[in-house]
Design a protein around this nucleic acid. Sequence first.
DNA 1: AAGGGCCCCAACCGCTCTCAG
DNA 2: TCTGAGAGCGGTTGGGGCCCT
Length: 325
Amino acid sequence: MGRPPCCDEKGLKKGPWTPEEDHKLMNYIQKHGHGSWRALPELAGLNRCGKSCRLRWTNYLRPDIKRGTFSKDEEQTILQLHSILGNKWSAIAKNLPGRTDNEIKNFWNTHLRKKLIQMGIDPMTHRPRTDFFAALPQLIALANLHQLIEQQQWDGHTTMSQTEAVQVQGASHQYMQTMFQTAASIAPNPTPISSLNSLTTDLEQISHLNPQHMLSSTLHEIGGEDKARQVPHNQMPSTFFDQTLSNINLSSDNNVSSSGQYHAEGGSGNRKSMLLSENSLPPLTDMSASNPCNAISTSKCGASSTLSPSWSEILLDEELMREFE
DNA sequence: AAGGGCCCCAACCGCTCTCAG
DNA sequence: TCTGAGAGCGGTTGGGGCCCT
C-alpha cells in the first residue's frame, strides 16, 4: 500500500529555497509556531510540501543553529557518540547544541569516516579493520618499528628511551592481538585455529616479525593453549590472500543480502535492520549497535569494560601515524 | 582561460515510529 | 486491536563551487 509522497502533489515546488521563501517560512513560524507541518505551507503562503518546510526550518532556518566548521571538541564528541550509538544522527545531534543531524551526518560522511578509513579503522565498529588490506600499512609500520627497536637494542645504540621503546612495543603487540581477537570474534564458532595460525604465519612472512609469543597468548585467550598445540603447522591454508578473503567472507556471509546490502541485527523495536549502501565499507562486525561496550569509549561503559583505550588513541593520533610512515 | 574531476552539503526519498480515533 | 495521518529519521542524490591540469 503505502502513502504517496507528499511532494508528489501537483505544482508543489522542489529544489533549493529562495530568500523570499525562507522569509515567508521564518515569519510564519516566528508568529504562529509551526503547528501542523502539513497545513503550514498553505497558511504561510508557500508552494512547498510540509515536509520540505520542516526540513528547511530544522536544518537551516532555526535561529539556534550553529554554522561553520566543527571544532576539535565537537569532532571528538561525534566520534565517541558514534562509537556508542552508531548512525543515530538525531541522537548524536542532541548532544551537540546548535548542530543538526543532517549537518553531523554530512560531516561524518565527508570527513570523519574518511579519516578513520585512512587510519585503518573500520568506521562502523571503531576498531581496527580485520581485512588486512586496509590495516596492512599500519601493521607493517608497527612491525618495522618493532624490529627497528629490537635491532637498536641489540646493537646497543638507541635514540629512544627504554620507556618509549617499551610503550611502542606494547602498542605493536596490542595491535596484533586486537587484530587476532577481532578476527576470532567474527569467525564462526568454534574458531578454526588453523585460520589464526595461518594469519599469523602469513603476517610473519610479510612483516619479518616473529610473533610467537603473541600467537601463544592470543590463542590462549581465544581457545586455550591445548588447541593451539593440537594444530599441526602443515594444515595451514596456503596463501595470505586466500585466507584473508575467506575471513572477510566469513564475516559477511550471514549478513549480506542478494542486493548487496548489509543487514545488522540489533537494537530494539521494529527497526532492526541497518542498511548500508554498496559503497560503504564492509562492516566486519556491528559491535556498536549490539554491544556499546565493545566500542571505543570505555568510559561510558562502567568498570566492567576492560578494552584498553590506548589503541584507538594511538591510531587517532595523526602525528604519531605520520611518524610511523 | 577552459574544462574535467572531485568534494561538499542542502534537499529529497522512502521507510519506520507514534498516536489519535 | 486496527488503521491511517503526521512526524521523524537515515540514506542518497544532484548541483554548485573549487581545484587541478
